[in-house]
Amino acid sequence: MTAAIRTVLGDIAPEALGVCDAHDHLFISSVALPGQKLDDSEAALAELDAFAAFGGRAVVQWTPWGMGPRTEDLPDLSRRSGVHVISATGIHQAKHYARGELERVYGELPGLFIRELTSGRVNAGMIKVAGAYHRLDDHARHVMAAAAEAHHATDAPIGIHLEAGTAALDVLHFLCDTCEVPARRVILGHLHRFPDTRIHRQAAEAGAFLAFDGPSRAHHGTDWRLLDSLAALTDAGHAQQILLGGDTVTPMARSSADGPGMPFLLSGLRPRIERELGPDIACAIFTENPARAFAAQWRQP
């Protein structure tokens, strides 16, 4: 079976993905973040165009079910910008949903995920779930077990929101040892928020992809350690497992407003990575690694 990346315009060969922002948001809303939603299609297009102007060719939207992903708008944005877009199914932490919203789907999450991966007019290309701070709570275990079931049915990759970058090894133990998901199908997100290079190395040794994402977030104080974290992984032989994303979640974080937005990955970070780690490492991080992380041998249940 040939591996493919599932975009909102259909499946593509991994080598067609190009330079990729591996974790970002064109649309998102949460009851926990009032007044901070991304819901403007033209602003989303402007951000994609700005990213494309620096050579960006693909963006992965990690916005899961119930958080305003505006999935129906993504194909038009992809066509107009010329940027591949991968969307997500999945469930975030319970605090991001209105009271009663999760209860109506909680007992059928594997089926929900599988439908959104395989049966929609616009199919998702990954599953996004979340841990708790330094642990996995009951909600996280329930949702991750459902994600594992959907993975086994479809081969979809699973992306993890690590709360403040913590509990990476707990996630891998649960998904890989308990739920039998191969570590190479797991993408651990927000590792820059907890810059413990020993944990990063252990996660990489287990076989997972490691996503460092969030330079658009002004309230996170660990961006200055990003290059050290990437260098440590590279020196340990794990450059082929690193991903980078912008994780733009508010209007003011976009490049069209006051933030660095999606383009900063290529205008700000890529030159530093090329200079300090070399152009081959930069190519791996922005092009080769996403092509492997998001490719799947898609199965139809």
Results as ranks from 00 to 15, higher is better:
287 T>G: 08
165 G>C: 04
182 P>S: 05
177 D>K: 04
224 W>P: 00
170 D>A: 14
213 D>Q: 09
144 M>G: 07
225 R>Q: 14
161 H>A: 06
223 D>W: 14
151 H>R: 01
258 D>W: 09
247 D>I: 10
270 R>S: 03
131 G>K: 00
276 E>I: 12
243 L>E: 02
104 R>F: 06
7 T>I: 11
194 F>G: 00
268 G>K: 09
36 Q>C: 13
119 S>N: 12
144 M>W: 04
220 H>Q: 09
287 T>H: 07
87 S>K: 05
285 I>N: 01
283 C>T: 15
161 H>S: 04
234 T>P: 02
88 A>G: 03
120 G>Y: 00
163 E>D: 08
59 V>I: 12
279 P>R: 15
170 D>M: 03
33 L>N: 11
224 W>G: 12
109 L>P: 12
301 P>E: 07
31 V>A: 04
84 H>C: 04
244 L>C: 08
201 R>G: 05
4 A>M: 13
235 D>I: 10
124 A>M: 02
229 S>F: 00
110 P>Q: 06
121 R>P: 06
289 N>L: 05
147 A>P: 04
75 P>E: 12
99 R>C: 03
103 E>I: 09
18 G>R: 01
7 T>E: 10
43 A>I: 08
251 P>C: 07
133 Y>W: 14
76 D>K: 14
270 R>C: 06
260 P>D: 03
246 G>L: 02
67 M>T: 13
249 V>M: 13
186 V>R: 00
107 G>P: 02
210 L>Q: 03
278 G>Q: 13
150 A>P: 05
3 A>T: 07
291 A>G: 08
238 H>M: 09
291 A>Y: 02
51 F>W: 04
199 I>L: 13
63 T>N: 14
71 T>C: 08
282 A>P: 02
104 R>A: 15
122 V>G: 04
184 R>E: 15
202 Q>Y: 09
197 T>V: 14
150 A>D: 02
265 L>K: 01
78 S>I: 08
